[in-house]
Amino acid sequence: MKERSSMWHCLLLDLKDDAALIEEYRRWHRPGAVPSAVVASIRASGIEQMEIYQRGDRLVMMMKTGPGFDPAAKAAADAADPEIVAWETLMSRMQQPLPDAAPGDKWLPAERIFALSDQPAVAGE
């Protein structure tokens, strides 16, 4: 059986359109501000890299996962960990789901529609 390699995920979420809440969200995501239990949980789940980008009230998360990453297992572990539940509760005060999110959904996956690596070579390259 072939082992799956690392994989990139692009996830989207909105912040509430409130300057004070957006600044609070940014403060919580500065280096050293995220609780160590949250960082440890992310790393232990098989997430190799994670970055969050912001434009206005829109967030884009880029996440690289290793071959052992299981989103369902990560969700179950998070739901059973009081420190992660407290973090998610805090973050939920500042976040709002995308308009097309199902009830209870937060970060939604974006569909990749272009990759330069998939394009044919151009003569002279």
Rank of each mutant, 00 (worst) to 15 (best):
residue 86 A to H: 06
residue 64 K to N: 10
residue 50 M to A: 15
residue 40 A to D: 08
residue 1 M to S: 15
residue 13 L to I: 05
residue 36 S to N: 09
residue 83 E to H: 09
residue 27 R to T: 03
residue 98 L to H: 05
residue 72 A to H: 02
residue 58 R to Y: 09
residue 83 E to G: 02
residue 14 D to P: 07
residue 14 D to F: 03
residue 117 S to P: 01
residue 111 E to W: 02
residue 125 E to F: 01
residue 67 P to C: 08
residue 107 W to N: 12
residue 69 F to D: 01
residue 111 E to N: 06
residue 93 R to C: 11
residue 4 R to Y: 05
residue 13 L to S: 09
residue 92 S to N: 12
residue 101 A to P: 09
residue 123 A to G: 08
residue 92 S to W: 04
residue 29 H to P: 14
residue 24 E to A: 10
residue 18 D to Y: 13
residue 41 S to T: 08
residue 10 C to R: 03
residue 99 P to H: 00
residue 120 P to R: 06
residue 5 S to E: 13
residue 5 S to D: 09
residue 40 A to M: 02
residue 7 M to L: 12
residue 111 E to S: 05
residue 91 M to N: 15
residue 3 E to D: 14
residue 28 W to T: 07
residue 1 M to G: 13
residue 67 P to E: 13
residue 14 D to Y: 12
residue 100 D to T: 05
residue 78 D to I: 00
residue 74 K to E: 03
residue 39 V to Y: 00
residue 97 P to V: 05
residue 55 R to A: 04
residue 71 P to M: 02
residue 122 V to L: 13
residue 14 D to V: 00
residue 64 K to F: 04
residue 83 E to L: 13
residue 89 T to G: 09
residue 109 P to G: 01
residue 46 G to E: 07
residue 44 A to I: 05
residue 12 L to I: 02
residue 100 D to P: 00
residue 43 R to F: 00
residue 70 D to C: 11
residue 49 Q to N: 12
residue 24 E to V: 04
residue 39 V to W: 02
residue 93 R to T: 00
residue 32 G to Y: 05
residue 43 R to W: 03
residue 89 T to M: 00
residue 92 S to E: 08
residue 45 S to V: 10
residue 93 R to V: 01
residue 36 S to L: 08
residue 78 D to G: 05
residue 27 R to M: 06
residue 72 A to L: 08
residue 92 S to V: 02
residue 22 I to H: 04
residue 66 G to E: 08
residue 63 M to P: 14
residue 113 I to F: 13
residue 35 P to A: 04
residue 76 A to W: 15
residue 112 R to F: 06
residue 118 D to A: 05
